[in-house]
């Protein structure tokens, strides 16, 4: 059974990224269980050459919670084959009161239960206006 059954690749990656980010910034739940709902324990993500394992991803949640106040995901295209997915999307956000936009070229591999086990991505920053609002308010965050 494919983890994409009944869901388009575009919708899958949009739902995955948006839901994970929502859970990170929404509340004060321990980051470990959040990561474990979306990634397998042996997950590895290579982002712009930087290797991120479960411990590093968990450590990254604290600063994201503090710094990210708005975000919006725009999926440009996505393809799926077997348990793998490739997607190109832009993450619009507001971090430390500055608008940021990052285009992401993403390859991922999913476990049978739909969790991400491997991801490899290259990113590039897109120009934005300083101080603008880069996305929707994060749940539980007040307007900056």
């Amino acid at each position: 059974m494919s983890p994409f059954d009944g869901v388009s690749p575009e919708q899958f990656i949009a739902d995955f990224m948006t839901s994970f980010t929502d859970e990170i910034v929404r509340g004060e739940e321990d980051p470990g269980p959040i990561v474990d709902r979306y990634y397998t324990p042996d997950m590895i993500q290579i982002a712009d050459g930087v290797r991120i394992d479960r411990d590093k991803l968990i450590a990254h949640i604290r600063p994201v919670r503090k710094n990210l106040t708005h975000y919006r995901l725009e999926v440009h295209e996505a393809l799926a084959s077997g348990n793998r997915i490739a997607a190109r999307f832009t993450l619009h956000g507001q971090m430390r009161k500055k608008a940021v936009a990052t285009e992401v070229h993403f390859f991922g591999e999913l476990a049978a239960d739909g969790r991400m086990s491997r991801a490899h991505q290259l990113t590039r920053a897109l120009p934005t206006g300083q101080g603008g609002q880069g996305g929707q308010p994060a749940p539980g965050k007040e307007e900056a």
């Binding site: 982002a47 930087v50 590093k56 604290r62 990113t123």
Partner: peptide
């Protein structure tokens, strides 16, 4: 420093 994964960090 822990938690850094990208250029923004």
């Amino acid at each position: 420093v822990s938690g850094m994964v990208c250029g923004h960090c």
